[in-house]
Write a protein that binds this DNA or RNA. Structure first.
Lengths: 114, 114
DNA sequence: ATTGCTTATCGTCGATATACGATATACGTC
DNA sequence: GACGTATATCGTATATCGACGATAAGCAAT
């Protein structure tokens, strides 16, 4: 089974790039990628990038989905931090959270051999 | 594969940056991100990047999951093209498909305003 | 307060993901 | 051939996703 040091950390004592923090690291990246793991959410993000900001209704209008469905996708994007929404009177104005997007880019770009 | 003109495009007649190709584009990115949208799969990819290649059994040993579950995750990674596996005697040797990873990086890096 | 508009949430449904054990398949060795 | 090892697949259970319509909650204007 495990050739090296069974009971401490199985995970890459040799590599040590892949040590314990890796689990949290993987969870972070998985969470961010999961937010983009649906075509509708990718399109929303892209839409928000092309316009500086976007009223929720505009997003709904662009998508072939029911309003409630779009709202759910927006919630997912908000929960993962990729998108921010601020209330503007009766509407909600969504925009990209550049920091979160940068984080995603950084993690993806960091996917390479040691 | 979206053909050229699907007669009723709600999508961005105004924006036109987000016109039809965007749908396919979004699907591509969503598929790739979806492959990474699970911590176990992120860890597998990372593992394969740190070693040049990896026998399936090694991967199983590193993960707190049953062999069949790991095999399923590997299948997902293989189906999306991120990982390749070649049979080597009684074992299977997995490695990263650098082209697919590069494609993912490119798509993610391309996520920015116009 | 009532109406109208915008967005979020609820309830529900079918489809899919995730996990596991059990079994099947493929290979090398005896 | 029979056996053990390595991996994939099957079958199944549970959880979550993704979609929708219906409804609630918020605000602006009448």
């Amino acid at each position: 089974m495990v050739p090296i040091k069974p009971e401490t950390q199985e995970c890459c004592i040799t590599g040590e790039n892949l040590a314990l923090p890796d689990v949290a690291w993987a969870a972070d990246l998985a969470k961010l990628t999961w937010a983009l793991a649906h075509p509708a959410r990718v399109r929303i993000v892209r839409l928000l990038l092309n316009r500086k900001s976007c009223i929720c209704g505009e997003i709904v209008a662009e998508m072939p989905l029911a309003q409630s469905t779009v709202s759910q996708h927006l919630k997912i994007l908000k929960d993962t931090g990729l998108v921010q929404g601020e209330i503007d009177g009766p509407r909600v104005c969504y925009c990209i959270n550049k920091a979160a997007l940068a984080q995603l880019k950084k993690l993806i770009a960091g996917l390479k051999g040691n």
